[in-house]
């Protein structure tokens, strides 16, 4: 006997939304606290620091006065563009399903995954360049908070890739072999995965100027 979970597609009368959507928003609210706590720690550490970033530049070996003398702004800007583009392709994959266009969904979701992988490759280059200069999280406070914030964000990107790859591959059985209810259920799943992905984009939108530019 198959167990039918209620309100996976239809909205509940009391909340007005389906359970999956309320669930993901509650999860995202907890994520706001997680990243919010780290942002607060960043501000706290920075306000209390005698010098920021508090280390020498890699080329001239003079004391750096700005974070962009240590971190690569062009690479971070490229990653910002990549992540924004992936947010657009993610929402377009959901819109394709709403228009009953499965090929469009596969294309846009595939692009989202490729862009997310591109983000991680750029991030790996960035980390590799730091490690090449023998600079690690333990080197100083600035680098500790930089690696923690961007590392935690990269873990979230990786989680998103795994979920999206499932929906691009084996998860599509629900759409291909299912009835109208299953198709609506699959579309809801993509919307929920999209909400998570846009949140990951949103966090980067704040991380980028705070860590790299100010």
């Amino acid at each position: 006997m198959e167990l039918q979970i209620p309100y996976e597609v239809t909205p509940r009368r009391d909340t007005g939304v389906n359970n999956a959507k309320l669930g993901i928003w509650l999860f995202l609210a907890s994520e706001v606290m997680l990243f919010g706590g780290l942002f607060a720690a960043y501000i706290f550490l920075r306000m209390g620091a005698d010098a920021w970033p508090g280390m020498e530049t890699f080329d001239t070996h003079e004391m750096a006065t700005r974070a962009d003398q240590i971190l690569s702004v062009p690479l971070a800007t490229l990653n910002t563009v990549i992540l924004i583009a992936s947010s657009v392709t993610m929402v377009l994959s959901w819109a394709s399903l709403k228009m009953n266009n499965f090929k469009g969904f596969k294309l846009h979701m595939g692009l989202t995954i490729l862009l997310a992988l591109g983000f991680l490759v750029v991030k790996a280059f960035e980390y590799g360049s730091k490690f090449g200069h023998h600079v690690y999280p333990e080197t100083n406070i600035f680098l500790a908070i930089y690696f923690v914030l961007t590392g935690l964000h990269a873990i979230h990107v990786t989680g998103g890739i795994i979920v999206n790859a499932y929906f691009w591959g084996p998860g599509t059985k629900m759409w291909l072999n299912g009835n109208a209810h299953d198709k609506a259920h699959f579309t809801n799943r993509i919307e929920v995965a999209g909400l998570y992905w846009h949140f990951v984009d949103l966090v980067w939108i704040f991380l980028f100027p705070m860590i790299y530019l100010v």
Binding site: P11, G16, V17, K21, L22, W25
Partner: peptide, 8 residues
Amino acid sequence: KQVIMWVL
């Protein structure tokens, strides 16, 4: 919907 706004 309003319930999402309240969560946020």
